[in-house]
Design a protein around this nucleic acid. Structure first.
Lengths: 148, 148
DNA sequence: TTAAATAGGACTAGAATAGTCCAGAATTAT
DNA sequence: ATAATTCTGGACTATTCTAGTCCTATTTAA
């Protein structure tokens, strides 16, 4: 089904809320607003801090805030933060453990597909996600440009 | 990680072999060549027959063959055969069970991303996968064209 | 000093995936 | 006819992954 994990899905909901809010917010507040359980919200926020998508402030009156403008946070970055490197196949990440050597001379072309998808996800930002009307920027993804 | 299931990965290996082979082949032969266990190969082949990517002949001297030219079998079709509809989020498939109503006014823009990725996967065929040199056709995916 | 937050990690339960196996049906060869 | 070969369909198991929770430590404000 080529699906995103539930946590990544939550992350986009949380980030969209934060992008609209603009000010620092505490995990508890996010949990209350989104309806996602607090421990789960915390887990996601921690990942996003580690990926430098968010910055955190500890202690009383602490909380989380976007590390940069919504326009500068791509969907690819968010997925990466929660699920690791974006790649459809294992071998696209590392070719070391591939025992399928016999029938598999595919590698190179999968990386083409991976890059195409990565580009697609890189081209959509948090700002696009919160844009009320669905009128995307003109975005072209010339596959062959990946090789220049 | 946005990954493809292992079975889908196997499927591309199997189909690549079949595309090169051109003639009808038995499941056992495929298993032998690819190194994938026979029961697993069978399972995958069955799915591909159901999706009309392959045709099968039963009985002695039976086997499997591509249902159409490699150029006419897209990666999207293969993924679809093994994993169901291509969509990053649940709600892109059906919006009925979405309890996240509170924080979620995202829907529309996700479908944009989904379509972009679907187009990317639709544009790569089995023929591209077996092409030895990685020199893809010029493929443009204008996102906004999805809305015309 | 206390309360309010985040940080880090361990842990559990449940779901999904991968993989196997078997009984049945179709076709060919003997 | 009978046997051998090969796909069909589905049930089943084991393993892995994901989601979700919880606990302890650390930091900061009042």
């Amino acid at each position: 089904m080529l699906r995103l994990s539930k946590l990544t899905d939550y992350a986009t909901v949380i980030l969209s809320f934060m992008a609209r809010e603009k000010t620092q917010v505490a995990a508890m507040e996010i949990a209350a607003v989104t309806g996602i359980a607090l421990p789960t919200v915390s887990k996601i926020l921690k990942s996003l801090v580690n990926a430098e998508v968010l910055v955190s402030t500890r202690g009383a009156k602490g909380g989380y805030a976007l590390a940069r403008m919504p326009e500068e946070i791509s969907v690819a970055t968010v997925i990466n933060a929660l699920e690791g490197p974006i790649a459809l196949t294992e071998c696209s990440i590392s070719h070391q453990g591939c025992e399928q050597a016999l029938g598999c001379d595919i590698g190179g072309n999968w990386s083409l597909i991976n890059q195409t998808i990565h580009n697609a996800l890189e081209s959509v930002t948090l700002a696009d996600l919160i844009r009320p009307a669905v009128l995307p920027n003109e975005v072209f993804i010339p596959v062959s440009s990946l090789y220049r």
